[in-house]
Amino acid sequence: MSDLNVMTPEESAATKAAVMNQVPGPEIQGQSPLHHADLESLAQKGPKTGGVHLRELKLLGHLTLRCNAENAEQLAAVERVLGVALPLQPLTSAENGAYSIRWMSPDEWLILVPGMETFDIETKFRDEMPGHYSLVNSSGGSTVLELSGANVLEVLKKSTPVDLHPKAFPVGKVVSTLFAKSGAVIRRSGEQRYELVIRRSFADYIWLWLQDASREYGLVIEA
């Protein structure tokens, strides 16, 4: 880690981008955007059966990579760091164990990694990536909700205008779209399982929305 505060002016001028380990020691517990909803208690006390299951995949590392999809050196570097190639086809995703990569835009990917590995991976990127790119840690700004169950499609259809029919939305597909009056990055992670990446400040709204939209099917909270 480059500590700006102890750098000489020359060192400082040579620093192209600031990278910092933003996660404190294990004695300080982070609060995910839905911390206040206390999903753990709801999971214990709430219903165990229902048409829709909700789980927060919290405190993951969220890294946004912007680079050139036509730059072979950059693509190779990504593969060295993550062990999997960037998905270049629009609206697709790739996975390698606990790492997943979502296509966001022709020059943008969202990389999810275990929270404690974030800084390590950021550092590796900074070491490996050539040329013009940007890497931004947005772990505090969003969270992941996993929705599953027999009625998950109905709830999603109430929430987003995207066509979710299995023919149009195969497993692995990713879309950035509207979600109620907010937005979400939706990825189909299984036959009846979807992951939503949502923004922190909208998390409570989306939580309220999902409770309302799933009311007729029954909502099961998983922790």
Binding site: Q22, V23, P24, I28, Q29, G30, Q31, S32, P33, H35, L59, N137, S139, G140, G141, R200
Partner: peptide
């Protein structure tokens, strides 16, 4: 600070 630690 990263928002997950903002309240702390």
């Amino acid at each position: 600070v990263q928002a997950n630690y903002g309240m702390h």
